[in-house]
Simulated assay, not measured.
Amino acid sequence: MNFATFDLNLMRVLDALLREGSTVQAGRRLNMSQSAVSGALSRLRYALGDELFVRHGNRLVPTAYAKRIELPLREELDRLATLFAPPTTFDPATAEGTFRITASDFFAEMLMPPLADHLRKEAPLIRAQLVDLVPTSYIDSLETYRADLALIPRQEVPDWTKSLPLFHSSFVVIARRRHPRLAAEKIVPDDVVPIDLFCDLGHVLFSPEGNFSAMGDAALARVGRRRQVMMTLPVFSGVCRAVAESELIGLVPRQLAERVAPQIGLDIYRPPMSIEPALIIAVWHKRLNSSPLHAWMTEQVVALMRQLNEGEEKSVT
């Protein structure tokens, strides 16, 4: 391809085709006719030396080459849009946009209600979405534009991301109110559950992947013990509800337990083994660093979440 003579407008057509998978829908996105989009696709195929799309029913399916350049192309278009955008002062009161957060349902309880109230007062035209966190693909969500911000336990993150610490969270034991086994042992709320009883009782475990072990099991293994995980659930709300309506117990973040315990009839106890508090961090793609909307929304999320912190924050790179 001779880049000196390449029509850069074709980049927008290719991006629209990759997004829509249809010449008709791409035309609507770009305010072009279907025939104009089809003509642009022919020129793209000639210039790039690749078929780019093959028809599958009513859809245009990208070739391996087109799929490989999809994200880099989108990033370049975003960079150019930012480069040529006129300087403006961000005003949350008039700003419009959608901000997508990928996180566990812990944040449906602890973040979204105060964020909803804050946006209603300060930024009524900005929409916030909480989307399911899939632990094995949250990075993909950031890279493929399905999420603007990920809220996750501290871990290694790619060098194309940025991150900030939010809060530390310890774990507590939850049980139904006046649990018969705990009452029989005269264990009252805020007591330590004896380790023999803790391991003998059945547990409900939060695990989006369906694993039967987590941080609590690793802590037990360090003292040579095991617990009985009888059920796993992909959402914390399900864990709390299952515990409230059975004689199973569970380990959940302290902040969540304290929020929901009075509402659904739970008592809170301390675990018998030492579990290091989890540090929750916010992660985003560096390409969003120049977005005023992203910067403002991230600042609001960070401010709200740091109110949950239990101890001194540690630096995150």
Rank of each mutant, 00 (worst) to 15 (best):
T5V: 15
T5N: 07
V13C: 02
L14H: 02
E20G: 04
Q25N: 04
M32L: 14
S38C: 10
A40V: 03
R45Y: 08
Y46S: 13
V54G: 02
H56N: 10
V61S: 07
T63G: 07
R68Y: 03
L71Y: 04
R74P: 09
E76K: 12
T89H: 11
T89I: 14
E96S: 13
G97L: 10
F99K: 08
I101S: 01
P113N: 00
A116R: 12
H118I: 01
K121W: 10
A123W: 13
I126W: 01
A128W: 01
P135W: 06
P135F: 05
Y145L: 15
A147D: 09
R154H: 08
P158S: 06
D159N: 07
W160F: 14
P165A: 05
F167C: 03
F171A: 14
V172M: 11
R176I: 12
H179A: 09
A184R: 15
V193C: 01
V193H: 00
L197C: 06
L197S: 11
D200H: 14
D200L: 15
E209H: 04
L220H: 00
F236A: 07
G238I: 10
S246T: 14
I249R: 00
I249G: 08
R254N: 06
R254V: 12
L256V: 01
E258M: 13
R270E: 14
S274A: 15
V283K: 06
P292C: 06
A295D: 13
T298H: 03
V302Q: 02
R306A: 00
L308A: 03
N309H: 12
E310S: 06
K314H: 14
S315K: 15
S315M: 14
